[in-house]
Amino acid sequence: MVLLTLLAAITIGIVRLRNLFAVVVLGGIYSFLMASVMIVLDAVDVAMTEASVGAGISTVLMLGVLSLTKTQETEPVHTPLLPVFVAVATGAVLVFGTFALPPFGAADTPVNLHVAPYYLENSIRDTLVPNVVTSVLASYRGFDTLGEVVVVFTAGIAVLMLLKGKRDIKPGPKRRRVHR
């Protein structure tokens, strides 16, 4: 509860601040709080990822961007009423959706009744791996994980192409390569 209150306070801070440097730092704090929430929910591996990617790497990347651009956000030219309405309406729909969710950690939900019991019972017999998360991720659902890695790969390649653009091939009879 304390963590969630802090999250809300930081979100308000991010919305109200115009200094982007402070916003980036608050974003890092938000990620660390989110990592703490993940630890409370017993998802230590997600917390580790959140702390190092959300608070570490993406904060650094954001600061790198800030060094290339201005650090002060310009005043908005439109009234914020429509975005506020959209945000509040979406939030209300999501909160309404949580009323139909089963209680946290309930064992008789469809999620926990489908294939999860099989994994929990047979992980050690099938793979000798006591950590079921790892055996599901890499063995039972290895193909999905391959897809995830391909997603990381694709995103990385796309960003690198956008940022580097080392050579561009000029269309023409000679197809000369120009180095920038």
């Binding site: 650094v60 790198g64 793979t127």
Partner: peptide
């Protein structure tokens, strides 16, 4: 299965760390 998991996780490690550092470098 256990050996396979270890090998596959090395692949994940290589791609993920490489991507993160490459983006930072650029």
């Amino acid at each position: 299965q256990e050996y396979g998991i270890i090998l596959v996780e090395i692949g994940v490690l290589v791609t993920v760390s490489g991507t993160m550092v490459a983006i930072f470098y650029s």
